[in-house]
């Protein structure tokens, strides 16, 4: 069980304020979606939660402890992170890749314990990559690789999972698989936070949405309360057909913002 709290957290990249005084408290057992147009500060917000970017002001606390004061290893055992872009530099097998998720738990100079191996097994099971375990991860299709990297994240067995655009470049079937998987993790008691672009997926699967616009958190609540036609027009500059749970962008809004 974990609680992640942001209190007026701001992030500055260069001279630009990319996250502007965002406050929110995220609790265990919820699937939280972070949405907003490109450049709204979604990824930066996620990285701030992980302590990967320094805060310009405000604070991020994890179970009452300031993330910026925590050791990287301690954060790593509580927050599992799936970075954007399916980055993988060496041609590891899926099994070896998933085992990287156990790095935060390994004692210095020691090999994986039976408990670590069990955790890898469970992650492979949960992400449904058992059939790929011997394959080289860099040679997989985009959808397969996404699942393998997700399994790597699950292998951490952290109480919270933060995923940056896990649906990017996936076909609709794989998108549903990934969202269903994230929801299962949340139902099992984890805090799951994910950056999303697909509004229908966000509305269908998330328990709560944070809508970002130019660094500011402009709406926070249940998906259908956040995704109103008025907000979509104002934030994304689109007119959308809203037929819950379907949110279909139909045109660039031509009205002045």
């Amino acid at each position: 069980m974990v609680t992640l709290s942001l209190d007026a957290a701001s992030v500055r990249l260069g001279r630009r304020l990319v996250v502007d005084a965002v406050s929110a408290t995220l609790g265990a057992g919820t699937l939280v979606g972070i949405i907003g147009p490109n450049g709204a500060g979604k990824s930066s917000l996620l990285r701030a939660m992980l302590g990967l970017v320094p805060l310009a002001s405000g604070s991020v606390t994890l179970d009452g402890e300031s993330v910026s004061a925590m050791a990287r290893g301690a954060i790593a055992r509580k927050l599992a992170y799936l970075p954007q872009g399916q980055l993988l530099h060496w041609p590891l097998t899926v099994e070896r890749l998933v085992a990287l998720g156990r790095l935060p738990h390994l004692a210095p100079m020691s090999a994986m314990s039976p408990a670590d191996i069990d955790a890898v097994e469970r992650a492979i099971e949960r992400a449904d990559v058992a059939g790929l375990r011997g394959r080289v991860a860099t040679e997989l299709s985009g959808g397969e690789r996404a699942r393998a990297l997700l399994a790597r994240t699950l292998a951490v067995e952290a109480p919270a999972l933060l995923a940056d655009e896990p649906l990017a470049s996936l076909d609709p079937g794989h998108q549903i698989d990934v969202m269903a998987l994230l929801r299962r993790e949340a139902r099992a008691g984890a805090l799951v936070v994910t950056v999303l672009h697909d509004l229908t997926m966000a509305a269908r699967y998330c328990d709560r949405l944070l809508l970002m616009d130019r660094g500011v958190l402009v709406a926070d609540g249940a998906p259908l309360d956040v995704l109103t036609a008025e907000r979509l027009r104002r934030v994304y500059g689109i007119s959308a057909m809203i037929d819950p749970p379907m949110i279909v962008p139909v045109a660039r809004s031509l009205e002045p913002l």
């Binding site: 992980l50 970075p83 530099h89």
Partner: peptide
């Protein structure tokens, strides 16, 4: 060694796995 393994997932990925 371990930090180099973690870097397989890029810099953010490595730091999120506890590498300093």
């Amino acid at each position: 060694g371990r930090a180099l393994d973690a870097l397989t997932l890029g810099e953010d990925g490595a730091r999120a796995l506890g590498a300093d």
